[in-house]
Design a protein around this nucleic acid. Structure first.
Lengths: 116, 116
DNA sequence: TGCGCGTATGTCAGATAGGACATATCAGGG
DNA sequence: CCCTGATATGTCCTATCTGACATACGCGCA
C-alpha cells in the first residue's frame, strides 16, 4: 500500500504529532484533544446550534468556540469538556469520543446527516 | 434504606456537587475530575511509583502530584490526563475511568492488592 | 527519640488559558 | 452589489494554572 511505498522511498510516515517530533504521550494527548474538538463540532451542529448560541450557554464567546472546534493551542481539555457538556454530551459520550477511532469524513458519513 | 429515612426527615440527599449548588454540567465535570484523580492514584500505586517519581516523569513536582490525586481545585483536567499518560494509561484507560461507576472502596477491593 | 521516606498543604512568581473585541471571510438572499 | 448570519483569526488584559519550595504530617525502624 501507499505507506510502504513512501517509506521505501525514504519517507517516515505517521501522524502529525510524530512529524512535529512530539513524545508518544504528547502525541496521544493531542489526538485526544482533536477527538474532543471534532466531537464538539459534530454535537453542536446536530443540535442545530450556532457558535454564538453555544458560547452563550457556556458563558463564553463565539471566537472561543471557533477556537475550540479548531483545536487551537490556547484551548484546554477542560474547556472542551465543558463545551461538550453544554452541547448536551454525557460522560459516556465524552469517553466514546476519546476512544472512537477517527476516520476521514466519508461521503456516506456526510449523507447520513452529519455536516448539518 | 438510609436515603429514604433521611429524605422523609426533610433532608435532600445527593452528591457533594449537588450540595454545593452546582449546575448539572458542573456536577458532571467535577465527577469526571474525581474519576481521573483516583484513577491516577490507583495507576501510580499499581506501578509502584512514588509521587516524586511520577512527578519527575511528568516534569512536575511531588506537591503537584499530591494535589492531582487530591483533585485540588488548582488542577486542570489537562494535567490529570498528562499525569495518567505518564503513569502508563492509554486513551482507553482514560475513557474507562471516565465511564466507570465509582463505588466506595471495599475491604475486598483493598485485599485484592490495591492500596499498595 | 531521632531518622528516612512518602505524602499533604500553603504560598508565590511566572506561564498559560479564556473572555471580549475587532476584523475578515464566506454563503445566501434580495 | 449590499445585507445578514455564521464562522475564522488575531490581539489584549486578566484570571487561572503550574512548578518550585518550604514545611508539616504519618509511619516504620533502630
Amino acid at each position: 500500500m501507499k505507506r510502504k511505498r513512501l517509506e521505501s522511498g525514504g519517507w517516515r510516515v505517521g501522524s502529525v504529532a510524530e512529524f512535529l517530533g512530539l513524545s508518544e504521550d504528547e502525541a496521544v494527548f493531542v489526538e485526544l484533544k482533536l477527538a474532543l474538538s471534532s466531537e464538539l463540532r459534530d454535537r453542536r451542529q446536530e443540535q442545530g446550534l450556532s457558535q454564538v448560541e453555544l458560547a452563550k450557554r457556556l458563558g463564553s464567546s463565539q471566537s472561543r468556540v471557533a477556537k475550540m472546534e479548531a483545536s487551537d493551542p490556547s484551548v484546554s481539555v477542560d474547556l472542551l469538556i465543558r463545551g461538550l457538556l453544554a452541547a448536551g454530551a454525557t460522560k459516556n459520550d465524552i469517553a466514546g469520543a476519546i476512544v472512537r477511532r477517527r476516520r476521514k469524513r466519508s461521503a456516506r458519513g456526510a449523507a447520513r446527516g452529519n455536516f448539518l
